[in-house]
Design a protein around this nucleic acid. Structure first.
Lengths: 250, 250
DNA sequence: CGTTTCCTTGACTTAACTCAAGAGGAGTGG
DNA sequence: CCACTCCTCTTGAGTTAAGTCAAGGAAACG
Protein backbone atom coordinates (compact mmCIF):
# COMPACT_ATOMS: atom_id res chain seq x y z
CA UNK A 1 0.00 0.00 0.00
CA UNK A 2 1.17 3.51 -0.80
CA UNK A 3 1.37 6.70 1.22
CA UNK A 4 -1.87 8.59 1.83
CA UNK A 5 -2.55 11.13 -0.92
CA UNK A 6 -1.97 14.21 1.17
CA UNK A 7 1.21 12.78 2.69
CA UNK A 8 3.56 15.46 1.35
CA UNK A 9 1.04 18.24 1.79
CA UNK A 10 0.53 17.31 5.41
CA UNK A 11 4.27 17.10 5.94
CA UNK A 12 4.54 20.64 4.71
CA UNK A 13 1.58 22.05 6.59
CA UNK A 14 2.99 20.54 9.77
CA UNK A 15 5.48 23.38 9.68
CA UNK A 16 2.64 25.73 10.32
CA UNK A 17 0.26 23.92 12.59
CA UNK A 18 -0.53 20.56 14.14
CA UNK A 19 -3.63 18.76 13.00
CA UNK A 20 -5.85 16.40 14.88
CA UNK A 21 -6.18 12.88 13.47
CA UNK A 22 -9.67 13.81 12.28
CA UNK A 23 -8.37 16.80 10.40
CA UNK A 24 -5.65 14.72 8.82
CA UNK A 25 -8.17 12.14 7.75
CA UNK A 26 -10.47 14.72 6.29
CA UNK A 27 -7.63 16.26 4.32
CA UNK A 28 -6.57 12.88 3.01
CA UNK A 29 -10.11 12.07 2.02
CA UNK A 30 -10.48 15.35 0.18
CA UNK A 31 -7.26 14.66 -1.70
CA UNK A 32 -8.13 11.05 -2.35
CA UNK A 33 -9.93 11.54 -5.63
CA UNK A 34 -8.70 9.77 -8.69
CA UNK A 35 -5.22 10.92 -9.55
CA UNK A 36 -4.36 12.37 -12.92
CA UNK A 37 -1.07 11.93 -14.66
CA UNK A 38 0.78 14.42 -16.80
CA UNK A 39 3.58 12.97 -18.86
CA UNK A 40 7.00 14.50 -18.65
CA UNK A 41 7.29 17.85 -20.42
CA UNK A 42 3.56 18.10 -21.05
CA UNK A 43 1.37 20.88 -19.72
CA UNK A 44 -1.11 20.44 -16.92
CA UNK A 45 -2.80 23.63 -17.93
CA UNK A 46 -1.97 26.25 -20.48
CA UNK A 47 -2.02 30.03 -20.64
CA UNK A 48 -5.42 31.18 -21.82
CA UNK A 49 -7.24 28.14 -20.47
CA UNK A 50 -9.98 28.53 -17.98
CA UNK A 51 -8.68 27.28 -14.64
CA UNK A 52 -10.32 24.03 -13.61
CA UNK A 53 -9.50 22.74 -10.15
CA UNK A 54 -6.49 23.40 -8.00
CA UNK A 55 -3.75 20.91 -8.84
CA UNK A 56 -2.18 19.23 -5.82
CA UNK A 57 1.09 17.58 -6.81
CA UNK A 58 1.32 14.04 -5.44
CA UNK A 59 4.46 12.87 -7.22
CA UNK A 60 6.95 14.51 -9.53
CA UNK A 61 7.94 18.09 -10.17
CA UNK A 62 5.92 20.70 -12.02
CA UNK A 63 6.72 24.24 -13.03
CA UNK A 64 4.92 27.43 -13.93
CA UNK A 65 6.18 29.35 -16.86
CA UNK A 66 5.41 32.24 -19.10
CA UNK A 67 6.49 32.70 -22.69
CA UNK A 68 7.13 36.01 -24.41
CA UNK A 69 5.99 36.64 -27.99
CA UNK A 70 9.47 36.02 -29.31
CA UNK A 71 9.84 32.67 -27.57
CA UNK A 72 11.88 33.60 -24.53
CA UNK A 73 10.59 31.62 -21.62
CA UNK A 74 10.79 32.24 -17.89
CA UNK A 75 10.15 29.60 -15.28
CA UNK A 76 8.22 31.47 -12.64
CA UNK A 77 7.97 28.81 -9.99
CA UNK A 78 8.81 25.20 -9.26
CA UNK A 79 6.32 22.90 -7.63
CA UNK A 80 7.29 19.86 -5.61
CA UNK A 81 5.11 17.07 -4.27
CA UNK A 82 2.73 18.47 -1.70
CA UNK A 83 2.41 21.81 -3.45
CA UNK A 84 -0.99 23.29 -4.16
CA UNK A 85 -0.78 25.27 -7.36
CA UNK A 86 -2.60 28.53 -7.15
CA UNK A 87 -5.12 27.65 -4.52
CA UNK A 88 -7.65 30.32 -5.34
CA UNK A 89 -6.84 30.92 -8.97
CA UNK A 90 -10.10 29.47 -10.17
CA UNK A 91 -11.72 32.84 -9.57
CA UNK A 92 -9.86 34.24 -12.55
CA UNK A 93 -11.31 33.47 -15.92
CA UNK A 94 -8.13 32.81 -17.81
CA UNK A 95 -4.76 31.47 -16.86
CA UNK A 96 -2.11 34.11 -17.47
CA UNK A 97 0.63 31.48 -17.51
CA UNK A 98 1.07 27.75 -17.98
CA UNK A 99 1.88 24.89 -15.67
CA UNK A 100 3.97 22.08 -17.08
CA UNK A 101 5.39 18.78 -15.87
CA UNK A 102 9.14 18.58 -15.44
CA UNK A 103 8.99 14.89 -14.70
CA UNK A 104 5.99 12.69 -14.99
CA UNK A 105 3.55 14.19 -12.50
CA UNK A 106 0.79 12.49 -10.54
CA UNK A 107 -1.69 15.00 -9.23
CA UNK A 108 -5.28 15.52 -8.20
CA UNK A 109 -7.40 18.50 -9.09
CA UNK A 110 -9.25 19.81 -6.08
CA UNK A 111 -12.49 21.55 -6.85
CA UNK A 112 -13.42 24.84 -5.40
CA UNK A 113 -15.97 23.07 -3.23
CA UNK A 114 -13.43 20.64 -1.92
CA UNK A 115 -11.19 23.50 -0.88
CA UNK A 116 -14.09 25.27 0.75
CA UNK A 117 -15.06 22.11 2.59
CA UNK A 118 -11.53 21.76 3.85
CA UNK A 119 -11.46 25.32 5.07
CA UNK A 120 -14.77 24.71 6.82
CA UNK A 121 -13.17 21.99 8.93
CA UNK A 122 -12.07 24.65 11.33
CA UNK A 123 -9.67 27.51 11.86
CA UNK A 124 -6.55 25.36 11.94
CA UNK A 125 -7.13 23.93 8.49
CA UNK A 126 -8.44 27.21 7.18
CA UNK A 127 -5.38 29.08 8.31
CA UNK A 128 -3.05 26.34 7.14
CA UNK A 129 -4.43 26.78 3.63
CA UNK A 130 -3.83 30.48 3.99
CA UNK A 131 -0.32 29.89 5.16
CA UNK A 132 0.21 27.76 2.10
CA UNK A 133 -0.71 30.48 -0.33
CA UNK A 134 1.16 33.13 1.64
CA UNK A 135 4.36 31.15 1.56
CA UNK A 136 3.91 30.61 -2.16
CA UNK A 137 3.67 34.36 -2.53
CA UNK A 138 6.74 34.84 -0.34
CA UNK A 139 8.70 32.48 -2.55
CA UNK A 140 7.64 34.45 -5.59
CA UNK A 141 8.90 37.63 -3.94
CA UNK A 142 12.20 36.00 -3.13
CA UNK A 143 12.58 34.95 -6.75
CA UNK A 144 12.08 38.58 -7.67
CA UNK A 145 14.93 39.54 -5.35
CA UNK A 146 17.02 36.70 -6.68
CA UNK A 147 16.66 37.77 -10.28
CA UNK A 148 16.98 41.44 -9.54
CA UNK A 149 19.92 41.59 -7.19
CA UNK A 150 22.01 38.46 -7.19
CA UNK A 151 24.66 37.58 -9.72
CA UNK A 152 24.72 34.29 -11.57
CA UNK A 153 26.56 32.25 -8.97
CA UNK A 154 24.49 33.60 -6.12
CA UNK A 155 21.27 33.06 -8.05
CA UNK A 156 22.01 29.46 -8.76
CA UNK A 157 23.16 28.78 -5.21
CA UNK A 158 20.06 30.43 -3.87
CA UNK A 159 17.81 28.23 -5.95
CA UNK A 160 19.62 25.12 -4.76
CA UNK A 161 19.29 26.25 -1.14
CA UNK A 162 15.59 26.90 -1.55
CA UNK A 163 15.04 23.50 -3.09
CA UNK A 164 16.93 21.79 -0.29
CA UNK A 165 14.82 23.48 2.36
CA UNK A 166 11.60 22.83 0.52
CA UNK A 167 12.43 19.20 -0.14
CA UNK A 168 13.32 18.79 3.49
CA UNK A 169 9.95 20.24 4.47
CA UNK A 170 8.18 17.46 2.60
CA UNK A 171 10.55 14.73 3.72
CA UNK A 172 12.16 14.24 0.34
CA UNK A 173 15.75 14.68 1.32
CA UNK A 174 18.19 12.19 2.74
CA UNK A 175 20.65 14.19 4.79
CA UNK A 176 21.91 16.56 2.14
CA UNK A 177 21.18 14.32 -0.80
CA UNK A 178 18.17 14.60 -3.00
CA UNK A 179 16.94 14.19 -6.52
CA UNK A 180 16.86 17.30 -8.65
CA UNK A 181 15.23 16.41 -11.95
CA UNK A 182 16.14 19.67 -13.62
CA UNK A 183 18.32 20.07 -16.66
CA UNK A 184 20.76 22.92 -16.80
CA UNK A 185 18.49 24.45 -19.40
CA UNK A 186 15.63 24.37 -16.89
CA UNK A 187 17.83 26.08 -14.35
CA UNK A 188 18.69 28.65 -16.98
CA UNK A 189 15.04 29.42 -17.57
CA UNK A 190 14.40 29.67 -13.86
CA UNK A 191 17.34 31.92 -13.09
CA UNK A 192 17.26 34.09 -16.18
CA UNK A 193 20.58 33.07 -17.62
CA UNK A 194 21.82 31.06 -20.56
CA UNK A 195 22.38 27.32 -20.30
CA UNK A 196 26.05 27.83 -21.06
CA UNK A 197 26.45 30.17 -18.16
CA UNK A 198 24.52 27.89 -15.82
CA UNK A 199 26.97 25.20 -16.74
CA UNK A 200 29.92 27.40 -15.85
CA UNK A 201 28.37 28.31 -12.52
CA UNK A 202 27.64 24.68 -11.73
CA UNK A 203 31.29 23.91 -12.43
CA UNK A 204 32.27 26.70 -10.12
CA UNK A 205 30.11 25.35 -7.29
CA UNK A 206 31.55 21.91 -7.88
CA UNK A 207 35.11 23.16 -7.86
CA UNK A 208 34.45 24.98 -4.60
CA UNK A 209 33.35 21.66 -3.13
CA UNK A 210 29.90 23.01 -2.39
CA UNK A 211 27.83 20.59 -4.43
CA UNK A 212 27.94 17.25 -6.14
CA UNK A 213 25.49 16.78 -8.99
CA UNK A 214 25.37 14.06 -11.58
CA UNK A 215 22.24 13.10 -13.44
CA UNK A 216 19.46 13.64 -10.95
CA UNK A 217 21.55 12.89 -7.89
CA UNK A 218 22.29 16.07 -6.04
CA UNK A 219 24.21 16.54 -2.83
CA UNK A 220 25.06 19.67 -0.94
CA UNK A 221 28.56 18.98 0.29
CA UNK A 222 28.61 22.12 2.39
CA UNK A 223 25.19 23.60 2.94
CA UNK A 224 26.44 26.44 5.11
CA UNK A 225 28.93 27.36 2.44
CA UNK A 226 26.24 27.24 -0.21
CA UNK A 227 23.95 29.43 1.88
CA UNK A 228 26.79 31.89 2.37
CA UNK A 229 27.43 32.17 -1.34
CA UNK A 230 23.72 32.71 -1.94
CA UNK A 231 23.14 34.97 1.03
CA UNK A 232 20.30 32.61 1.70
CA UNK A 233 18.00 33.34 4.60
CA UNK A 234 15.26 30.75 4.92
CA UNK A 235 12.93 33.06 6.85
CA UNK A 236 10.83 33.68 3.76
CA UNK A 237 9.81 30.04 3.63
CA UNK A 238 8.10 30.49 7.00
CA UNK A 239 8.90 26.92 7.97
CA UNK A 240 9.70 27.65 11.58
CA UNK A 241 6.51 26.47 13.19
CA UNK A 242 4.92 29.84 12.92
CA UNK A 243 1.53 28.53 13.81
CA UNK A 244 2.29 26.85 17.08
CA UNK A 245 0.14 29.50 18.66
CA UNK A 246 -2.79 27.97 16.87
CA UNK A 247 -1.99 24.52 18.08
CA UNK A 248 -4.74 23.09 20.20
CA UNK A 249 -2.88 19.87 20.85
CA UNK A 250 0.33 21.17 22.38
CA UNK B 1 -15.47 67.32 1.34
CA UNK B 2 -13.08 64.66 0.11
CA UNK B 3 -13.53 61.42 -1.81
CA UNK B 4 -14.83 58.44 0.14
CA UNK B 5 -12.00 56.43 1.66
CA UNK B 6 -12.38 53.40 -0.55
CA UNK B 7 -12.70 55.52 -3.68
CA UNK B 8 -9.62 54.13 -5.43
CA UNK B 9 -10.12 50.62 -4.14
CA UNK B 10 -13.66 50.58 -5.48
CA UNK B 11 -12.49 51.97 -8.79
CA UNK B 12 -10.12 49.06 -9.06
CA UNK B 13 -12.52 46.37 -7.90
CA UNK B 14 -15.01 47.60 -10.46
CA UNK B 15 -12.82 45.89 -13.02
CA UNK B 16 -13.81 42.63 -11.49
CA UNK B 17 -17.38 43.01 -10.38
CA UNK B 18 -20.17 45.51 -9.88
CA UNK B 19 -21.26 46.29 -6.35
CA UNK B 20 -24.62 47.32 -5.06
CA UNK B 21 -24.84 50.71 -3.35
CA UNK B 22 -25.11 48.87 -0.03
CA UNK B 23 -21.93 46.97 -0.69
CA UNK B 24 -20.15 50.13 -1.69
CA UNK B 25 -21.30 51.83 1.46
CA UNK B 26 -20.22 48.94 3.61
CA UNK B 27 -16.79 48.93 2.03
CA UNK B 28 -16.43 52.65 2.51
CA UNK B 29 -17.47 52.35 6.11
CA UNK B 30 -14.99 49.58 6.76
CA UNK B 31 -12.23 51.69 5.26
CA UNK B 32 -13.36 54.83 7.02
CA UNK B 33 -11.31 54.40 10.18
CA UNK B 34 -8.84 57.07 11.14
CA UNK B 35 -6.18 57.37 8.50
CA UNK B 36 -2.51 57.01 9.30
CA UNK B 37 0.25 58.91 7.60
CA UNK B 38 3.71 57.68 6.72
CA UNK B 39 6.15 60.40 5.83
CA UNK B 40 8.02 60.15 2.59
CA UNK B 41 10.80 57.55 2.63
CA UNK B 42 9.72 56.13 5.99
CA UNK B 43 8.62 52.57 6.52
CA UNK B 44 5.05 51.56 7.16
CA UNK B 45 6.23 48.22 8.47
CA UNK B 46 9.64 46.63 8.61
CA UNK B 47 11.06 43.18 7.99
CA UNK B 48 10.92 41.18 11.18
CA UNK B 49 7.93 43.07 12.56
CA UNK B 50 4.77 41.27 13.43
CA UNK B 51 2.17 42.21 10.83
CA UNK B 52 -0.56 44.41 12.28
CA UNK B 53 -3.47 45.19 10.02
CA UNK B 54 -3.65 45.22 6.26
CA UNK B 55 -2.61 48.61 4.94
CA UNK B 56 -4.96 50.09 2.37
CA UNK B 57 -3.27 52.94 0.53
CA UNK B 58 -5.52 55.99 0.31
CA UNK B 59 -3.06 58.50 -1.09
CA UNK B 60 0.53 58.33 -2.24
CA UNK B 61 2.75 55.52 -3.42
CA UNK B 62 4.27 52.78 -1.30
CA UNK B 63 6.70 50.02 -2.11
CA UNK B 64 7.74 46.65 -0.78
CA UNK B 65 11.40 45.90 -0.62
CA UNK B 66 13.90 43.44 0.63
CA UNK B 67 17.49 44.10 1.56
CA UNK B 68 20.36 41.63 1.30
CA UNK B 69 22.99 41.36 4.00
CA UNK B 70 25.42 43.41 1.97
CA UNK B 71 23.00 46.26 1.42
CA UNK B 72 21.74 45.52 -2.07
CA UNK B 73 18.07 46.30 -2.16
CA UNK B 74 15.32 45.09 -4.44
CA UNK B 75 11.97 46.77 -4.78
CA UNK B 76 9.58 43.85 -4.98
CA UNK B 77 6.36 45.69 -5.67
CA UNK B 78 4.89 49.13 -6.03
CA UNK B 79 1.61 50.06 -4.38
CA UNK B 80 -0.66 52.77 -5.65
CA UNK B 81 -3.72 54.30 -4.04
CA UNK B 82 -6.42 51.67 -3.72
CA UNK B 83 -3.95 48.87 -3.18
CA UNK B 84 -4.39 46.47 -0.29
CA UNK B 85 -0.97 45.36 0.85
CA UNK B 86 -0.82 41.70 1.61
CA UNK B 87 -4.41 41.13 2.45
CA UNK B 88 -3.94 37.94 4.42
CA UNK B 89 -0.38 38.38 5.56
CA UNK B 90 -1.36 38.83 9.17
CA UNK B 91 -1.40 35.06 9.54
CA UNK B 92 2.37 35.00 9.32
CA UNK B 93 4.21 35.86 12.46
CA UNK B 94 6.95 37.95 10.97
CA UNK B 95 7.23 40.15 7.94
CA UNK B 96 9.83 38.79 5.56
CA UNK B 97 10.17 42.15 3.85
CA UNK B 98 9.45 45.81 4.48
CA UNK B 99 6.93 48.27 3.16
CA UNK B 100 8.03 51.84 2.73
CA UNK B 101 6.53 55.11 1.58
CA UNK B 102 7.79 56.54 -1.69
CA UNK B 103 5.84 59.71 -1.22
CA UNK B 104 3.95 60.73 1.82
CA UNK B 105 1.33 58.02 2.21
CA UNK B 106 -2.09 58.24 3.78
CA UNK B 107 -3.42 54.81 4.63
CA UNK B 108 -5.71 52.89 6.93
CA UNK B 109 -4.89 49.61 8.56
CA UNK B 110 -7.73 47.17 8.22
CA UNK B 111 -7.92 44.61 10.95
CA UNK B 112 -8.39 40.96 10.29
CA UNK B 113 -11.96 41.26 11.60
CA UNK B 114 -12.73 44.13 9.27
CA UNK B 115 -11.57 42.08 6.31
CA UNK B 116 -13.62 39.12 7.49
CA UNK B 117 -16.66 41.32 7.92
CA UNK B 118 -16.24 42.63 4.42
CA UNK B 119 -15.96 39.14 3.00
CA UNK B 120 -19.11 38.23 4.90
CA UNK B 121 -21.07 40.86 3.00
CA UNK B 122 -21.63 38.32 0.29
CA UNK B 123 -19.99 36.42 -2.52
CA UNK B 124 -19.39 39.43 -4.71
CA UNK B 125 -17.32 41.23 -2.11
CA UNK B 126 -15.69 38.03 -0.98
CA UNK B 127 -14.58 37.16 -4.47
CA UNK B 128 -13.52 40.70 -5.22
CA UNK B 129 -11.11 40.53 -2.30
CA UNK B 130 -9.83 37.27 -3.71
CA UNK B 131 -9.45 38.81 -7.10
CA UNK B 132 -7.43 41.55 -5.49
CA UNK B 133 -4.91 39.21 -3.99
CA UNK B 134 -4.75 37.06 -7.10
CA UNK B 135 -3.94 39.99 -9.31
CA UNK B 136 -1.27 41.07 -6.84
CA UNK B 137 0.24 37.61 -7.20
CA UNK B 138 -0.02 37.82 -10.98
CA UNK B 139 1.85 41.10 -10.96
CA UNK B 140 4.56 39.53 -8.86
CA UNK B 141 4.89 36.73 -11.39
CA UNK B 142 5.14 39.21 -14.22
CA UNK B 143 7.91 41.02 -12.39
CA UNK B 144 9.72 37.70 -12.22
CA UNK B 145 9.42 37.36 -15.99
CA UNK B 146 10.46 40.95 -16.43
CA UNK B 147 13.63 40.56 -14.42
CA UNK B 148 14.45 37.17 -15.82
CA UNK B 149 13.89 37.60 -19.52
CA UNK B 150 13.75 41.19 -20.60
CA UNK B 151 16.72 43.43 -21.25
CA UNK B 152 17.12 46.83 -19.68
CA UNK B 153 15.09 48.84 -22.17
CA UNK B 154 12.29 46.32 -22.26
CA UNK B 155 12.23 46.07 -18.49
CA UNK B 156 11.89 49.76 -18.00
CA UNK B 157 9.25 50.08 -20.70
CA UNK B 158 7.33 47.22 -19.18
CA UNK B 159 7.26 48.86 -15.80
CA UNK B 160 6.00 52.10 -17.30
CA UNK B 161 3.28 50.22 -19.19
CA UNK B 162 2.19 48.43 -16.06
CA UNK B 163 2.01 51.65 -14.11
CA UNK B 164 -0.04 53.32 -16.82
CA UNK B 165 -2.58 50.51 -16.83
CA UNK B 166 -2.74 50.34 -13.06
CA UNK B 167 -3.09 54.08 -12.69
CA UNK B 168 -5.82 54.06 -15.28
CA UNK B 169 -7.62 51.36 -13.32
CA UNK B 170 -7.86 53.66 -10.32
CA UNK B 171 -8.67 56.75 -12.31
CA UNK B 172 -5.35 58.43 -11.74
CA UNK B 173 -4.38 59.09 -15.30
CA UNK B 174 -5.33 61.94 -17.58
CA UNK B 175 -5.20 60.56 -21.08
CA UNK B 176 -1.63 59.35 -21.17
CA UNK B 177 -0.32 61.74 -18.57
CA UNK B 178 0.23 60.86 -14.97
CA UNK B 179 2.41 61.49 -11.99
CA UNK B 180 5.22 59.05 -11.41
CA UNK B 181 6.89 59.95 -8.15
CA UNK B 182 9.81 57.60 -8.63
CA UNK B 183 13.42 58.61 -8.85
CA UNK B 184 15.65 56.89 -11.36
CA UNK B 185 17.30 55.20 -8.41
CA UNK B 186 13.91 53.77 -7.40
CA UNK B 187 13.43 52.48 -10.91
CA UNK B 188 16.88 50.95 -10.73
CA UNK B 189 15.98 49.08 -7.56
CA UNK B 190 12.73 47.89 -9.06
CA UNK B 191 14.22 46.72 -12.34
CA UNK B 192 17.47 45.31 -11.05
CA UNK B 193 19.81 47.69 -12.80
CA UNK B 194 22.07 50.56 -11.86
CA UNK B 195 20.78 54.12 -11.70
CA UNK B 196 23.24 55.10 -14.41
CA UNK B 197 21.86 52.53 -16.76
CA UNK B 198 18.27 53.48 -15.97
CA UNK B 199 19.18 56.99 -16.94
CA UNK B 200 20.54 55.86 -20.29
CA UNK B 201 17.44 53.79 -20.97
CA UNK B 202 15.18 56.70 -20.07
CA UNK B 203 17.12 58.85 -22.52
CA UNK B 204 16.66 56.17 -25.13
CA UNK B 205 12.89 56.09 -24.61
CA UNK B 206 12.81 59.85 -24.80
CA UNK B 207 14.83 59.95 -27.99
CA UNK B 208 12.51 57.40 -29.55
CA UNK B 209 9.63 59.76 -28.77
CA UNK B 210 7.95 57.16 -26.59
CA UNK B 211 7.85 59.06 -23.32
CA UNK B 212 8.13 62.48 -21.83
CA UNK B 213 9.20 62.60 -18.22
CA UNK B 214 10.30 65.55 -16.20
CA UNK B 215 10.08 65.72 -12.45
CA UNK B 216 7.00 63.75 -11.59
CA UNK B 217 5.16 64.59 -14.79
CA UNK B 218 5.08 61.57 -17.02
CA UNK B 219 3.48 61.15 -20.41
CA UNK B 220 3.42 58.21 -22.73
CA UNK B 221 3.73 59.84 -26.14
CA UNK B 222 3.13 56.55 -27.92
CA UNK B 223 1.65 53.89 -25.70
CA UNK B 224 1.42 51.30 -28.43
CA UNK B 225 5.06 51.84 -29.24
CA UNK B 226 5.98 51.56 -25.60
CA UNK B 227 3.99 48.34 -25.26
CA UNK B 228 5.75 46.97 -28.34
CA UNK B 229 9.18 47.68 -26.94
CA UNK B 230 8.18 46.02 -23.67
CA UNK B 231 6.27 43.15 -25.22
CA UNK B 232 3.62 44.20 -22.77
CA UNK B 233 0.47 42.13 -22.57
CA UNK B 234 -1.95 43.49 -19.98
CA UNK B 235 -3.76 40.18 -19.55
CA UNK B 236 -1.95 39.48 -16.30
CA UNK B 237 -3.58 42.49 -14.69
CA UNK B 238 -6.97 40.82 -15.15
CA UNK B 239 -8.64 44.17 -15.61
CA UNK B 240 -11.01 43.06 -18.34
CA UNK B 241 -14.17 42.70 -16.34
CA UNK B 242 -13.45 39.13 -15.56
CA UNK B 243 -16.17 38.94 -12.98
CA UNK B 244 -19.12 40.12 -15.00
CA UNK B 245 -20.49 36.64 -14.61
CA UNK B 246 -20.82 37.38 -10.92
CA UNK B 247 -22.65 40.57 -11.52
CA UNK B 248 -26.15 40.47 -10.19
CA UNK B 249 -26.95 43.95 -11.35
CA UNK B 250 -26.42 43.65 -15.06
C1' DC C 1 21.92 81.59 -0.76
C1' DG C 2 24.38 77.04 0.49
C1' DT C 3 23.35 72.12 0.60
C1' DT C 4 21.65 68.09 -0.80
C1' DT C 5 19.52 65.18 -3.97
C1' DC C 6 18.89 63.76 -8.49
C1' DC C 7 20.09 63.62 -13.20
C1' DT C 8 23.48 63.38 -16.84
C1' DT C 9 27.64 62.22 -19.44
C1' DG C 10 32.11 59.99 -20.56
C1' DA C 11 35.68 56.50 -20.28
C1' DC C 12 36.70 52.12 -18.89
C1' DT C 13 35.77 47.33 -17.01
C1' DT C 14 33.42 43.12 -16.48
C1' DA C 15 29.80 39.67 -16.17
C1' DA C 16 27.24 37.30 -19.00
C1' DC C 17 25.90 36.16 -23.80
C1' DT C 18 26.75 34.14 -28.44
C1' DC C 19 28.38 30.99 -31.53
C1' DA C 20 30.42 26.83 -32.47
C1' DA C 21 32.10 22.43 -31.83
C1' DG C 22 32.86 18.22 -29.39
C1' DA C 23 31.96 14.60 -25.73
C1' DG C 24 29.15 11.59 -23.13
C1' DG C 25 24.95 9.05 -22.37
C1' DA C 26 20.37 7.11 -23.17
C1' DG C 27 17.37 5.18 -26.10
C1' DT C 28 16.06 3.04 -30.77
C1' DG C 29 16.12 0.15 -34.56
C1' DG C 30 18.46 -2.74 -37.82
C1' DC D 1 25.58 -5.82 -30.71
C1' DC D 2 26.45 -1.90 -33.33
C1' DA D 3 25.14 2.34 -35.59
C1' DC D 4 22.24 5.97 -35.11
C1' DT D 5 19.94 9.86 -33.24
C1' DC D 6 18.88 12.94 -29.74
C1' DC D 7 19.72 15.32 -25.75
C1' DT D 8 22.42 17.25 -22.35
C1' DC D 9 26.64 18.76 -20.78
C1' DT D 10 31.13 20.87 -21.59
C1' DT D 11 34.73 23.96 -23.35
C1' DG D 12 36.84 27.81 -25.95
C1' DA D 13 37.02 32.26 -28.29
C1' DG D 14 35.05 36.46 -29.30
C1' DT D 15 31.22 39.95 -28.44
C1' DT D 16 28.09 42.86 -26.01
C1' DA D 17 25.03 44.60 -22.50
C1' DA D 18 25.36 46.43 -18.39
C1' DG D 19 28.19 47.86 -14.48
C1' DT D 20 31.73 51.00 -12.30
C1' DC D 21 33.93 55.10 -11.32
C1' DA D 22 34.14 59.84 -11.51
C1' DA D 23 32.77 64.40 -12.27
C1' DG D 24 29.74 68.13 -13.50
C1' DG D 25 25.15 70.28 -13.78
C1' DA D 26 20.44 71.11 -12.59
C1' DA D 27 16.97 71.38 -9.67
C1' DA D 28 14.78 71.25 -5.15
C1' DC D 29 15.12 72.58 -0.24
C1' DG D 30 15.50 74.80 4.01
Amino acid sequence: MSAPPAHRLLARLRHFTVFSPEERNAINTACGGSALVARQRRDLIREGDRPRGVPLILEGWAFRYKTLEDGRRQIIALHLPGDLCDIHGSILRKMDHSIGALTQVRYVELTRDQIDDLAALGPRVHQALWWDSLTTAAIQREWTVNLGQRDALERLSHLFCELIFRLRAVGMIDGLRCEIPLTQTDLAEATGMTPVHVNRMVQELRSRQLIRWKGREFEALDLDGLCDVAMFNPAYLHLDHEGRHLDALG
